[in-house]
């Protein structure tokens, strides 16, 4: 495996006007605007290997899109070096961008009121794709994404899901080596979401395309990626396989107990009560205790009369929420 992206010690600072507060603040802001420097990225380093699908996650405002913009050559970092596919993105821009594709989930690269196929033809010219190669790629994309019937309609007539499929096709026409996907499944219905995921996996396998994915949808991460990079407050907090994180939280359980009577006062060593309603009470084990079903039943039935109970692992979203709060990333 070769490293296709090497990101080392990247810093990025922005100067933003500072809003003053108070009764006449809007006048003060007008005459005297103060600026403060925000560190969007602070010594960010990571490597990505060719053919990987990497989930790039973090709460809003963590620096995700800044990183993507630096990687796609739109922004120049304040300091640090970056080599992608042998290029420095913000230098040799024209050469570099031939090998990347970018999909911004919220924005479109296709023309609003011209048939999709015309936009594709334009992209063909922009990327100087040879005729034969273009035909082959288009046939493949049409087949895999089921967009054959959409190509003669303008973008404005398509549904969100159809749009996303066309966007994906558009950014893959030139068979890029690296694909950046910014929130590719946002707002999509379940069926389309699955189709888009399958397609991303397919491209990754067939073309060995390296894919960097930012998303807030954890099921995307679970279904697609073999590696995640967690960023918060401009710093890399975790970089490794998703399994490891799941492992870390695997002993964390949520236990729902049905009592024989209405809930009253209750306490159990090593467990914390999260919520209760009528006969039901939900507990979780404290982080230093490991959950054993047998011990739990023994302990609880000594003190209380129980009818039934069920045990759940943490969901992916909950794991992430824990992770964020562990690093104090949650906005208060």
């Amino acid at each position: 495996m070769t490293k296709i992206i090497e990101f080392s010690d990247i810093c990025k600072q922005f100067k933003v006007p500072e809003k003053q507060k108070g009764k006449w603040s809007f006048l003060k802001n007008f005459f005297n605007r103060k600026c403060k420097i925000i560190k969007a990225l602070n010594n960010v380093s990571f490597d990505i290997e060719e053919g990987d699908i990497v989930g790039y996650i973090g709460p809003n405002g963590a620096g995700k899109s800044t990183t993507i913009k630096i990687m796609s050559g739109i922004l120049t970092p304040t300091s640090g070096t970056c080599a992608i596919n042998g290029y420095t993105p913000w230098k040799n821009r024209k050469e570099y961008v031939k090998n990347i594709g970018v999909v911004f989930g919220q924005r479109s690269q296709l023309w609003w009121d011209v048939p999709i196929i015309d936009s594709f033809e334009l992209l063909k010219d922009i990327y100087k794709i040879p005729n034969q190669e273009y035909e082959n790629t288009l046939t493949l994309l049409k087949e895999k994404l089921h967009i054959e019937d959409l190509l003669n309609r303008p973008l404005r007539q398509l549904s969100l899901g159809q749009k996303m499929k066309c966007e994906l096709a558009g950014s893959l026409l030139h068979r890029p080596k690296i694909l950046f996907l910014d929130e590719p499944t946002i707002g999509l219905d379940a069926i389309t979401k699955l189709a888009v995921r399958d397609f991303i996996k397919y491209i990754n396998k067939e073309w060995n395309t390296t894919i960097i994915l930012t998303t807030h949808d954890m099921s995307d991460i679970e279904a697609l990626t073999n590696k995640i990079i967690l960023i918060g407050k401009g710093q890399i907090l975790y970089n490794g396989s998703f399994e490891t994180i799941k492992e870390k939280y695997s002993h964390q359980k949520i236990i729902t107990v049905e009592l024989a009577h209405e809930y009253d006062e209750m306490s159990l060593d090593g467990y914390e009560i999260i919520s209760h309603e009528k006969n039901y009470v939900t507990l979780k084990n404290l982080s230093d205790t490991t959950f054993h079903a047998k011990d739990f039943i023994n302990d609880i039935s000594k003190k209380y009369e129980i009818v039934d109970f069920s045990v759940d692992s943490l969901s992916v979203d909950e794991i992430l929420a824990r992770l964020y709060s562990e690093y104090e990333l949650q906005e208060k």
């Binding site: 796609s72 050559g73 739109i74 821009r93 961008v97 990347i100 922009i126």
Partner: peptide, 10 residues
């Protein structure tokens, strides 16, 4: 404009 910057054209 971001979109234009990621195209291999002047």
């Amino acid at each position: 404009f971001d979109r234009l910057l990621i195209r291999p054209v002047n």
